[in-house]
Write a protein that binds this DNA or RNA. Sequence first.
DNA 1: CGATAATTTGAGACGTTTCAAAGCGGGTGG
DNA 2: CCACCCGCTTTGAAACGTCTCAAATTATCG
Lengths: 251, 251
Amino acid sequence: MSPRDRSSGIASLLVKDVRPPWDGQEDAQLERLLSDRTRALSKGALLVMESEASPARYLVRSGWLAVAKSLPDGERQIVEFILPGESYDPTAADGQTSFVELEALCDSNVAVIDTTTWSRLMKDLPDLRRCESQLAKAAWARQAERMLRLGKSDAETRVAYALIELCMRMTAIGATEDGAFHVPLSQQQLGEFTGLSSVHVCRTLRRLNRQGLITTEDHMDINIHDLYALADLAEVDLTMLRRDIIPGAAA
Amino acid sequence: MSPRDRSSGIASLLVKDVRPPWDGQEDAQLERLLSDRTRALSKGALLVMESEASPARYLVRSGWLAVAKSLPDGERQIVEFILPGESYDPTAADGQTSFVELEALCDSNVAVIDTTTWSRLMKDLPDLRRCESQLAKAAWARQAERMLRLGKSDAETRVAYALIELCMRMTAIGATEDGAFHVPLSQQQLGEFTGLSSVHVCRTLRRLNRQGLITTEDHMDINIHDLYALADLAEVDLTMLRRDIIPGAAA
DNA sequence: CGATAATTTGAGACGTTTCAAAGCGGGTGG
DNA sequence: CCACCCGCTTTGAAACGTCTCAAATTATCG
């Protein structure tokens, strides 16, 4: 990790509104198409279940979706969070079945676009296509980043990384204020994301707290006080991470 | 995991040649284009380094590539293997930089196709596009499967799963014989893939051996003797896994 | 205000890593 | 063709980190 100027504000690394506001920039017809297919989900609702037929793409317009997968013994891993403006296609190689489960983590609005329609949109709307291509690259980069830590890091690093990733993504959509943001997660769910037990998530959060890196308020309002120390713990280079996982954030 | 007919042969679940032989089915022009851009790599060669500019897609024509990522302290995670017929684009959200490292695990031939050319191919060759779309879905499903085990499983399950995944993918390209196949990996590298130390990979392999599930010969010639027991250990439903991660394997 | 879920903390069990040393195997040069 | 060397595998023993179980505390919601 290269040395960085620690005096520069958080804003320089976590700039707001860097994500191209793709909806709205295409014609109003797209907006109508999406509105027509948007479903309201309440917290905890299962949008799609594992192994269920679901040849569609899900586009989150508000709220959070968890992409999760379970072992026969009930252990659950959250593989990805879908934030507003992002989309996910859970279709497996057979083109029919979903290989994951999609759950609303809070009250949400999600547009459901069947594969055929989506292909047509991709063909007809070059701006949308470019935007989704960037988002897809970002998603790949995030997954690699997480697998690295899932496989090779201890609890502190995993939690620190998760917080940084979420903070960056939230900042990109203008959902943070000075390193403070809300995530609609229980410690249990943060554990399912980081591959830790909820008990150990709690201990780790507490430790970060004691070190003065973060504070948390009611049910996961997170305040990052020392982003740079947190980044060191997460073994992350903020500039590189942002370049890799935030669309339109090119240095 | 639902009960299965254990008397049916391995072949019924791990059918050969299910992958659409996309190259050759498009016109000879594509073949020429690929040949022109194919580079020979010797074992251990680094094709792309992390953070290096690389706006291209890499298509493996023969050999194996590892997609890997490292922590500052040197810990390494292999995020994906690219087998013959598969491709990978390591470009991050900025459209320029690679977020991973690409390494040849054995002597290989890889076609390097810059992003622009690739986009053109995708536009012009619907068969290729469909095929790559299936392969991409399979890759997403595999990653989810692995993250689940990376986060929530013990060593035995992780190793068993890795062996099964590799066996299935090898079978799909006709590179196995009766559950026997060769992987160009050291135990160290299998550890980097499964998130284990090489020492523990060794112990785990030995244990599977003692249980009569597998045998190994010189440098990773793997023989799966009891696929169903191995699948139970891996906590995997073979039929579902194949449907999810093998293109063209729809039940 | 009571019921229920989520967080917090402690103590012990368990699985994996680390360190260290020995054994094997393949390749090279004598 | 053998001797040597180097890298990979194998095994043991101790240290470490995380999980599990259990109980106390704190939030949340009707």
